[in-house]
Simulated assay, not measured.
Amino acid sequence: MGSWGYVYAFIELLLGVAFITGSNPFITNAVTFAVVTISIIGVFQTGLNKRKIKCAWLGAVFNLPMSTVTIIEDGLMIAMSGLMLTQFI
Rank of each mutant, 00 (worst) to 15 (best):
F44G: 02
I41A: 10
F88E: 02
W57F: 15
S67M: 03
S3G: 05
A56P: 14
S39Q: 11
F10W: 15
F88H: 09
A18C: 13
F44I: 00
A60E: 15
G2T: 08
I27V: 12
Y8K: 10
I27P: 09
L64Q: 15
Q87R: 09
V31D: 02
T21K: 08
F26L: 09
I89G: 14
I41D: 08
F33R: 10
V17F: 14
D74R: 11
Q87F: 07
G22L: 02
V69F: 05
N63D: 08
N29C: 03
N29D: 09
F33Q: 02
G82A: 09
E12V: 13
G16Y: 13
A9P: 04
G22I: 02
E73N: 10
R51M: 01
M84I: 13
A56W: 10
L13S: 03
K54R: 04
F44C: 05
Q45P: 00
G75C: 09
A60H: 12
V61G: 00
F10S: 07
L64C: 09
F62C: 08
V7A: 14
T68A: 05
M77H: 03
I38N: 04
K54V: 00
V7S: 05
F62V: 03
F62E: 07
N24L: 04
I41V: 15
I40A: 13
L83C: 14
S81Q: 02
V36H: 00
Q45H: 07
N24F: 08
V36R: 01
N49Y: 07
L83G: 14
G16Q: 11
Q45I: 00
I89H: 13
G22Q: 04
W4V: 01
I40G: 12
K54H: 04
